[in-house]
Computed example of a mutant assay.
Amino acid sequence: MSMTGYATTTISEFVGRELGVSDWVVVDQARIDAFAECTGDTQWIHVNVERARRESPYGGTIAHGYLSLSLLASLSIEIGLIPADAKAGLNYGLDKVRFITPVKAGSRVRCRVVLASVAKKGNDRILVKTENELQIEGEEKPALIAQTLVMLMV
């Protein structure tokens, strides 16, 4: 998705504005298991479906917090965070992350992105800070809120 007039030369005009909301994405057990395999985080609350049904306060398995956090990158790209005229957008870090509500296996999530600030870093780089809210379908509170940093290469 692209926003009308959104480019590296005009990005500062978008500060304080919502850039968009992503489509819903399913966080199913297969995704949770793949993340556990990649990271080595095989805590039972994420991967042991039967035990989680019996013992978890959530009635089943939940996604890793870092799995939920990692979805912000692709969902932000989906809404058009990186302007079409940028050469690249690189993950530059995080300023604040709070995990608020666990994402139960099978839930759908989406990301709402607001452009918080823009800072030129020389002639060929722009540091972009966004405020992200990962929403869970049917839940009152979000899964997480996070301020992310992206370095745009112009």
Rank of each mutant, 00 (worst) to 15 (best):
D28S: 07
D28M: 09
I32N: 06
D33I: 06
A34T: 05
E37M: 07
C38M: 15
G40S: 03
H46G: 05
V49D: 04
R51N: 05
R53T: 07
R54S: 11
E55R: 11
G60Y: 07
I62W: 13
H64K: 13
Y66M: 15
L72W: 09
A73N: 15
S74I: 12
I77N: 15
I79V: 15
G80L: 10
L81K: 10
L81H: 10
P83G: 02
A84Q: 15
A84T: 14
D85L: 11
G89D: 11
Y92E: 12
G93H: 06
L94P: 10
K96N: 12
F99E: 08
F99A: 03
F99D: 06
I100E: 13
I100T: 12
I100Q: 12
I100D: 12
A105M: 07
A105V: 07
G106P: 05
G106F: 05
R110W: 02
R110I: 01
R110V: 01
R112H: 04
V114S: 01
L115N: 00
L115R: 00
A116L: 02
S117P: 05
S117R: 09
A119K: 13
K121D: 11
D124C: 05
R125D: 02
V128D: 09
K129M: 01
K129R: 06
T130I: 10
E131T: 06
N132G: 09
L134W: 12
L134K: 11
G138H: 10
P142A: 15
A143R: 11
A146R: 15
Q147I: 13
L149V: 14
V150F: 09
M151P: 13
L152T: 04
